[in-house]
């Protein structure tokens, strides 16, 4: 049980995919023009990540090592396409924003990396705990980036006006350079926090 909890919390901070492993950058930079997009993209990725990790963990003794990558890709691509179809059918408003990027979940490094480095080596329960942690870690990270960009670029948060209607909008934050700037500054803040923690623990 302790192991499961540890696996779960791993993705939230210590090995956070976005801010620590710096993987899955394509959706991180491309869709985060609003906080809501971050949540939707994060949940879609979490869904795919959980099911593909579970399946790959279950089949880990059945998949021959030499063809494991094609097998992972087929599993991942299938789940992504299922998400794509259901999102288009049932959440059309969200699909209009994220539609272009949903198929790209297939090549999101987070999913391949967790399948290859973790799910294929451990029991299904641990794989799910890890996938859930990684998924939530990814979700909060890109939601945070989306929130910063939305707040500065549109003056809103989750679509609600939080700044005055007349506040000047920083258009660059909604454009691709804004994604890189936000990502870099948040990464720097993360590093400062972590470095401080390390220093504190070393003192004791």
């Amino acid at each position: 049980m302790y192991q499961l909890v540890k696996d779960f919390f791993n993705g939230l901070w210590n090995e956070n995919p976005t801010f620590r492993m710096i993987i899955g950058m394509c959706p991180t930079l491309a869709v985060t023009t609003a906080a809501m997009n971050g949540i939707a993209m994060g949940l879609a990725t979490t869904f795919v990540l959980m099911f593909s990790s579970l399946l790959i963990s279950l089949l880990r003794n059945f998949i021959p090592a030499k063809v494991r990558i094609p097998c992972y890709i087929i599993v991942i691509a299938t789940f992504v396409t299922v998400v794509d179809l259901f999102m288009a059918g049932y959440f059309p408003a969200m699909y209009k924003i994220l539609g272009l990027y949903i198929p790209l979940i297939v090549v999101n490094c987070i999913i391949m990396a967790r399948a290859e480095a973790f799910a294929s080596k451990v029991t299904p329960l641990r794989a799910i705990a890890d996938a859930l942690g990684m998924g939530i870690g990814f979700t909060w990270a890109i939601t945070l980036i989306g929130a910063v960009r939305e707040l500065m670029g549109s003056g809103t948060l989750f679509g609600y006006h939080v700044l005055s209607e007349n506040a000047t909008h920083w258009v660059i934050m909604l454009l691709p350079p804004g994604a890189f700037l936000t990502m870099g500054i948040l990464l720097g803040i993360m590093n400062v926090i972590t470095r401080k923690n390390v220093r504190d623990t070393q003192c004791h």
């Binding site: 000047t168 920083w170 258009v171 660059i172 934050m173 454009l175 350079p177």
Partner: peptide
């Protein structure tokens, strides 16, 4: 250029 892209109106 940062200002041009960020505050195009002003």
């Amino acid at each position: 250029v940062f200002l041009t892209v960020t505050f195009p109106v002003q």
